[in-house]
Write a protein that binds this DNA or RNA. Structure first.
Length: 491
DNA sequence: CCGAATGAAAA
DNA sequence: TTTTCATTCGG
């Protein structure tokens, strides 16, 4: 077996700045499949993006960076090849406020949220809605035939609920932004799957509405949504426009009907496996390596994390240790992470990331990016007791033994899950635009540790200071928890 | 009614 | 090349 060096081999970033999401995307896409560490030169490997993206980097329409690889519509027949938007449009200039409001993700949603209980929409069932159901939808929309969703809309739809839960807010603008950021980071398998679903959706849509043709309205038309014209209305008033520049469409634009007050719209359970229309059937997507629909490993949701990523009960202020869990979320709690029950198992965790070595690598160190590029790098380095910048060619030779590989893979998996929790915390803090000064953080921790009984009021006051007016709401911490979390015995 | 995202399709 | 519109629902 040959060890392939992961990362950008050929064309690297011309400028000194990294690709940001691209590197992380490759990290997650490749490392999770091959289970080998990445070597990342930049010190931002942890995924905390503080600076702005280089102007050379590929960006989304909102200015965020995007993956470098092309659209997975590979050599497909009719799909257009170049999707690159115009370099500069007036709209782009106008929206050039340079403030990327949404915090940056460090991994695709399929990875970040894989342990959540919130189900993912059953897209297989959704795109395979029978024509009868589609006709009913059209009827419920007063005859208006909607466009089939493209791959991204399907993706957004599939992950909307989870994204909301993960972001702890219901704002769909944020959902869209997060999904838009996650989409290019998704591994090719996932994107391919959603592209296939989009193709199926177009196919079934066409079969259900053979005469449908996309006929967008003229921009200047002000989009008079109130008026209803039937699906294949005749060409009529569209040609009469003041500017005269516009050549009327061959088919009159389909105007959305105004819904009647008592009109019933599509049930939001449609498309889920719970819908009686459909039978539950596992798809390749469900069985993918990321276990998208894994319901058995919930992320504890009634916990908070301190500045070091250590979980504690926000209501009592006590630090927590998870019982009978496969995972440890706190870098400093030496609970065993083995898959076996492990109640009396000796913690082999010594290092900050659950490593057999004795080198302490705190989260703060990671955050600062001083000692290690990534937690992954730290883990790998400790495994091999090498410096952080050792050449990987040598390292690969050192770990060529199968035993060490397996050990590493296991540690990698544990680190992955630990990282998820950490990243989630980072996201929420970032979403709250919170930067914790270490001294403040320790004060905050002290205030939490002092009383055995900490009133909710005190906590919320403290949290209110932390999160300010913005994004994070307390619902996240008040949600019921699935795994059992208990106060850690203070010593 | 706008926005926030990506992509299909039309102009 | 540029625009609309699929989705969603809080502001």
């Amino acid at each position: 077996m040959a060890f392939t060096r992961i990362g950008r081999t050929g064309v690297g970033p011309s400028s000194g700045e990294d690709y940001g999401l691209d590197a992380v995307a490759q990290h997650n896409a490749v490392a999770t499949t091959e289970k080998f560490p990445l070597y990342q030169e930049d010190a931002k490997g942890l995924g905390i993006y503080e600076g702005y993206i280089s102007s050379d980097a590929i960006r989304t329409r909102s200015g965020r960076s995007a993956a470098r690889h092309d659209s997975p519509f590979s050599v497909g027949s009719k799909s257009r090849v170049s999707k690159s938007p115009a370099a500069r449009t007036k709209k782009e200039k106008k929206a050039k406020s340079a403030k990327s409001k949404t915090p940056r993700l460090t991994a695709p949603l399929s990875v970040l949220t894989k342990d959540m209980n919130t189900p993912i929409k059953d897209m297989d069932a959704w795109v395979n809605r029978p024509a009868e159901v589609r006709h009913q939808e059209t009827e419920e929309r007063n005859g208006y035939v909607t466009r089939p969703m493209n791959s991204f809309m399907l993706y957004r739809s599939a992950y909307a609920e989870r994204t909301k839960a993960w972001c702890t807010q219901n704002n769909h603008q944020v959902v869209s932004a997060v999904c838009g950021e996650s989409w290019p980071m998704e591994p090719q398998d996932v994107r391919d799957q959603f592209n296939e679903w989009a193709r199926l959706e177009r196919e079934n849509h066409q079969a259900a509405h053979p005469d449908y043709k996309f006929s967008p309205c003229k921009p200047v038309n002000k989009r008079r949504k109130g008026e209803f014209s039937d699906e294949e209305d005749d060409v009529s008033d569209v040609g009469a426009d003041p500017d005269g520049d516009y050549r009327g469409p061959k088919v009159a634009c389909q105007k959305r009907p105004v819904p009647h007050p008592g009109q019933t719209y599509l049930n939001n359970t449609v498309g889920f496996s719970s819908n009686p229309y459909f039978t539950q059937q596992p798809t390749g997507y469900d069985n993918s390596q990321y276990q998208y629909t894994n319901p058995s490993r919930p992320l504890p949701s009634n916990i908070a994390y301190d500045h070091a990523g250590i979980p504690y009960d926000p209501h009592t202020g006590q630090y927590l240790v998870q019982q009978q869990s496969q995972y440890q979320y706190s870098p400093s709690i030496g609970a065993s992470t083995n898959t076996t029950n492990s109640t009396n198992e000796t913690p082999r965790t010594v290092g900050g990331y659950g490593l057999p070595g004795d080198q302490q690598v705190s989260v703060d160190d990671m955050l600062a990016g001083q000692r290690c590029d990534t937690p992954m790098q730290a883990l790998f380095n400790q495994m091999n007791q090498t410096s952080a910048y050792q050449q990987f060619g040598q390292v690969y030779h050192q770990i060529a033994q199968q035993e060490q590989q397996q050990q590493f893979q296991q540690l990698f998996q544990e680190q992955q899950e630990q990282q998820q929790s950490y990243e989630h915390q980072q996201y929420l803090q970032s979403a709250a635009r919170l930067t914790i000064d270490p001294s403040l953080g320790s004060d905050f921790m002290k205030s939490l540790q002092t009383p055995v009984v900490q009133s909710d009021n005190q906590f919320e006051t403290a949290m209110g200071e932390m999160i300010g007016n913005s994004y994070v709401n307390m619902d996240f911490f008040n949600q019921p928890t699935s795994p059992t979390w208990s106060p850690k015995t203070q010593k």
